[in-house]
Write a protein that binds this DNA or RNA. Structure first.
Length: 283
DNA sequence: CATAGCTCCTGACCGC
DNA sequence: TGCGGTCAGGAGCTAT
């Protein structure tokens, strides 16, 4: 489900509500992708810091000493996988019992943070710091953030010199630039006029400029629209996103391109669907 | 090192 | 209504 816009929309929807809250109790459901790595009872009493995002990961700092402040904060690294979503229910109350797909409940003095994830590809992992294991290892191979000023056409062009894979797969891999998943990779390539099968090392500098710009524009627009709700994406307050209705190619196989009228195609790359317009996008 | 393929898991949908 | 096959927003791991 969640690509960078959905993760960031989620973060913004609950970060300010939970910051400063004290953890009361953590309850686990079925196992997620990896074990939590700490006894849930040990999290009680810790204070939640400022929630941040790196790629599609969220980081919830937890501070044990109320006024310590020294040293790198430990915390929870969370990932929503394919089907995960976070809900935040403010206040204290009798929350609905955890359902079959609710696998992580963190009760705090500000409310309940709940991870729902039917497919359980998501994860919540305790780490003694963002730069400590296991968080450091999980984040190690991530590319640059798309809104980082360092990310531009020359960055992309340089990184693509050594790659022969199709550009769509390189965007998905997230080790050059993070954030574009299956929807936004197709959308960005459409916007840039680039055939998704084009080898990275065949992309000219100007085309890399167009692509870098398209990645930023597509992700920014999705962010403004609250993400994409294909089936069930919701932010932490249950709000759906609206980007999906703006998709130019994603999930539009057989429809006509709104720009040139050609028929949108669907192909499979790396066992994932790619959508593109054969009229607008060139090798 | 770069790349290709497999894998985790459940639910929705489609054709018969 | 049931059954089997296919597909789904991610990405780490392993083998080559």
């Amino acid at each position: 489900m969640p690509e960078l816009p959905e993760v960031e929309v989620t973060r913004r929807s609950f970060a300010s509500h939970i910051e400063g809250a004290v953890v009361l109790e953590v309850r686990l459901g079925k196992p997620l992708r990896w074990p939590l790595g700490i006894e849930p009872a040990q999290l009680a009493g810790q204070r939640v810091g400022a929630v941040s995002r790196r790629g599609k990961y969220l980081w919830l700092p937890l501070e044990s000493a109320p006024a310590a402040g020294a040293g790198p904060a430990a915390g929870l690294l969370m990932h929503l996988g394919m089907s995960g979503s976070l809900a935040f229910m403010p206040g204290q109350g009798a929350w609905p019992d955890a359902g079959t797909h609710d696998h992580f409940d963190m009760h705090t003095s500000a409310g309940l943070l709940r991870l729902t994830d039917p497919r359980r590809f998501g994860a919540v992992v305790w780490s003694s710091g963002l730069d400590q294991l296991p968080a450091a290892k999980l984040l190690a191979s991530l590319g640059v953030e798309p809104f980082d000023p360092r990310f531009d056409g020359s960055w992309l062009h340089a990184a693509f010199q050594r790659r022969r894979v199709a550009v769509k797969l390189a965007l998905l891999a997230g080790d050059v630039v993070v954030g574009a998943g299956n929807i936004y990779a197709s959308e960005a390539l459409f916007m840039a006029g680039i055939d998704p099968r084009t080898r990275c090392d065949r992309l000219s500098r100007p085309r890399c400029e167009r692509l870098a710009s398209a990645v930023r524009v597509v992700l920014a627009r999705a962010l403004e629209l609250g993400g994409s709700t294909l089936r069930d994406f919701r932010d932490a307050h249950g709000m759906a996103g609206a980007f999906q209705s703006q998709a130019a190619v994603y999930d539009r196989e057989g429809a006509s391109c709104q720009r040139c009228g050609a028929t949108i195609r669907r192909i499979v790359q790396g066992q994932r669907s790619t959508y593109f317009c054969p009229g607008c996008q060139r090798r």
